[in-house]
Amino acid sequence: MMARLQRLGRYGCDSLETLGRAGLFLVQSSFGIPSRMGWYLWLRQMHFVGVLSLAIVLVSGLFIGMVLALQGYTILVDFGAEQALGQMVALSLLRELSPVVAALLFAGRAGSALTAEIGLMKATEQLTSMEMIGVDPLRRIVAPRLWAGFVALPLLTVGFSVVGIGGGYLVGVEWLGVFEGSYWGNMQASVSFIDDIGNGMVKSLVFALVVTWIAVFQGYDLIPTSEGISRATTRTVVYSSLVVLGLDFLLTALMFGSLS
């Protein structure tokens, strides 16, 4: 019993210590005025993290929009309310599905790649050698990746929503024959810029921060062996997914809990 308590205590202390390290890591790497080189490095990472994630995010967005329209139609049509399809698709996407699903995909596509990349740099002593050259790897390697993730995910989320609404249109209007005017008109009337689009973007910014933070920290903090890299990559995806879903509930409760 004592041993179990002791283990629990040790686990708690270790977790707190890791959290502290992660916090310091975030502060040390993310603040500072970027040089011209810094902008260049950031743009390069925007390509790796953002542009290369575009395909998976957009295709998923299209299918999710189409499925939403299909499922929504079969329910709404029973109540003769299929004109509200546009509003249903848009609100589900903007408030929930785009930020959450894009963040989950992003964690799988870009987060795991970031962890593995930084981890491999650590394993091959590139980070140490950079330090010995007198360049801080936190500023040179970590900061551009952190900022790229922070900017890229919200943009990907916008893309996800746009394509998703388009997918809903294809299925709802073109295939199932919902009146085009009511699809767009109801959407326009019911979507609020601040409450729906704004809150969705806030969610997305929060997710972008935690997912990229987890990814680069796991890479930087891992044990530099092949096993260490594989574990850290797995942890990135698992932790990111759990944190995104948990935070989503919290944020939804704060943002939409009072709307009724």
């Binding site: 091959t124 002593e125 590139q126 050698s129 950079m130 050259i133």
Partner: peptide, 18 residues
């Protein structure tokens, strides 16, 4: 970091930026 500019270090693996 300033002091390190006066040192060079050769790593076992080379540690070139890939």
């Amino acid at each position: 970091f300033t002091l390190r500019r006066r040192m060079g270090m050769l790593f076992q693996s080379g540690a070139l930026f890939s």
